Amino acid sequence: MDFFGLLRIMFRRWFVVLPILALTAYLGVTFIGEPEIRYSSVGSELLVIDQAQSNAAGAAADSVVQTAVAGPLLRTALDQQSYRRSLAERGLVDSYLLVENLTPSVVTLQIQGPDAANVLQTGQTITAEATDLLVRAVGAGASAVTLRPVSDLTADDVVAFGEVSTLTVSIAVLPSAGGRVNPYPPSLSTMRLVTDLALRPNVQEAVANAAPNSTYAVTVQPRDTAPIVTVAVTSTVAAEIEPAYAAVVEALDRELADLQFAAGLEAGQLTTLTTLNPPAEGVRSSSSIVRPAAGVALLGIAAACVLAVVVDGLILRRRAKRQPRAQASSGDADGDGFDDTVEYEFADEREFESALRK
Rank of each mutant, 00 (worst) to 15 (best):
E45F: 09
V48T: 09
P35R: 00
A59S: 15
I241Q: 11
F11R: 14
G337S: 03
P149C: 04
G71M: 02
R84N: 09
N277P: 00
A257M: 11
A294T: 10
A140M: 06
A355G: 07
I111V: 11
V249F: 04
V283G: 08
L199C: 10
L276C: 05
L120H: 07
D312C: 15
L153I: 03
F11W: 13
A25R: 09
G28K: 09
T215Q: 11
F11N: 08
A257S: 14
Y39L: 02
S286R: 11
G91I: 06
R284N: 07
A211F: 01
R319D: 08
P227G: 08
P104M: 00
A328V: 02
I241C: 10
N213M: 10
T190H: 07
R12Y: 03
V248D: 05
M10C: 14
L273I: 02
L21S: 05
R284F: 10
M1T: 00
S287M: 08
V16S: 08
V203T: 05
V42I: 13
Y39R: 00
V194R: 07
R90M: 07
A128F: 15
L133P: 01
M191P: 08
E250P: 02
E349C: 15
R291Q: 10
A142G: 06
T131P: 05
S288D: 12
F3E: 09
F338Y: 13
T125L: 01
A294P: 00
V158A: 00
P227L: 06
L188D: 04
A68D: 09
L259R: 13
L167D: 05
A244Q: 06
